[in-house]
Design a protein around this nucleic acid. Structure first.
Lengths: 253, 253
DNA sequence: AAACAATGGTGTATAAAGTACACAATTGTA
DNA sequence: TACAATTGTGTACTTTATACACCATTGTTT
């Protein structure tokens, strides 16, 4: 928790630079060792956690604000970001307000503002990320999707909505370029899908379907040196991938 | 265009009641005589048009704000509303700013603020709507989807994004309960789909697919009195419809 | 060296869904 | 009574989805 002086200074700066009623919260997904990960922050003196977030500068496009915020937490520059929902319950930040209620009077306390939060989800390369805590936080680290701690504010809802959106997205858009390394095997990619969807898929049918999308290139040489039969290596055909991103997979009608 | 006094008064009131950097814009779809309609406003002394919109009261949930705004424009109370995107370009409201730049200094002029606009689209019963202009507008009226006038600000983009979202929605959610009258024929419902998608569909396959969703009830008696063969009347099975809304139609994976 | 365990590649048969297409029934009009 | 417009319905064909089994490679165990 911040001291009165720190909070005062932060509030003054924030009022000068940021829009007063907008925040951004990001659900950052990574994938490592067959596990879906989410980047979380643990505030000082807290057991619960928060999603990385921040505010929008007065003349900054929101897309750029989200990128800036994530660059500060991950070190990454060009991040796949998708805006998915605005969370606008008037009481959503009650925790923050209460936390600092006695430290400063409301007029001086930035966190007494009402913030509508724009939710973004990000798909990032796990190895490219160097998690970096902000001034309010003790820790900034990856957490497994199936071992999520309790979250503060309405971040539980934001996280769940992001995951739902991602699962829906899976039905009409390619996923994976931002989460997988440059080369990967079919079982590895399948694991990603299984983790996102939280269910097992049939190996053979998965392969047929994914290849049917026509966005993968198979390398000449299979991966060698590992135990067991050497698997083929695949990479995304970036042009076709981008095209599928804009076009979508299936018409439906 | 407002007089200096009117703008001053409006600005004072707005500053007192509304969040200073958020607006809401709504794309209201209706369906009548085989035509998709959108509700538009024409400001005083303007040739271009605007989507109905408004601001969020300081302690009001955004969903409620959208409902309030639409109630003022349509008279309708319980509207199917779907938040679909936030438009956050810093220059998106440049037109408004310029328009009133010489009337009042920026500090006093509400429209000098930067507004992020939350986009909602609404599906409404055409006959239930009594269009009602606001204080800034000369006209509030339905316009045909295939005869849209030029729009101001970034409302062209907002409209297009809403339509794209609606088309996507069509693939995994039922549409129509909010747009069709209580009873309707299969060709009428097909016309709705064709209008939204802007393409012809096969009668027989459409019927099979729609019925396959299991959300329609067929009336005992066909419609009578019209020319030609009497068509059957259908109505939505509200319970199943609601269920399909939450569940979605197809898994994909 | 042979058997085994673990992993990965591939094909086929069946079911379900999507697509294309044609004919018959009703009603008002010429 | 013939005709035009509209609506209802079925069937063959293609594509996609699903379920399922066998063989190949590699390191480890005996």
């Amino acid at each position: 928790m911040l001291t009165k002086e720190q909070l005062f200074e932060y509030s003054e700066e924030a009022r000068k630079n940021y829009l007063g009623n907008i925040s951004i919260d990001c659900v950052v997904f990574g994938f490592h060792e067959g596990q879906m990960k989410v980047l979380l922050l643990q505030p000082h003196d807290e057991t619960k956690w928060l999603l990385p977030g921040g505010f929008v500068q007065k003349q900054e496009p929101i897309e750029m604000a989200a990128n800036r915020i994530l660059k500060e937490r991950t070190g990454l520059d060009k991040i796949f970001l998708q805006q998915f929902h605005v969370f606008g319950d008037p009481d959503r930040a009650k925790f923050h307000h209460d936390l600092y209620r006695d430290t400063l009077p409301d007029e001086q306390n930035w966190f007494a503002n009402r913030f509508l939060s724009i939710g973004y989800y990000a798909l990032v390369d796990f190895f490219g990320v160097v998690p970096q805590a902000d001034e309010f936080s003790e820790l900034c680290t990856w957490r497994d999707l199936d071992d999520m701690p309790a979250l503060l504010l309405d971040h539980e809802l934001i996280f769940k909505t992001a995951l739902d959106t991602l699962r829906l997205q899976l039905n009409y858009q390619p996923i994976g370029y931002n989460l997988m390394p440059g080369e990967f095997t079919m079982p590895e990619l399948q694991k990603l899908y299984e983790t996102i969807l939280d269910k097992k898929l049939d190996r053979r049918n998965f392969q047929r379907r994914i290849l049917g999308f026509g966005i993968l290139n198979r390398a000449e040489q299979p991966r060698k040196g590992g135990a067991h039969k050497a698997p083929y290596l695949y990479s995304f055909d970036l042009e076709k991938y981008q095209n599928a991103l804009t076009e979508g997979f299936k018409g439906g009608w």
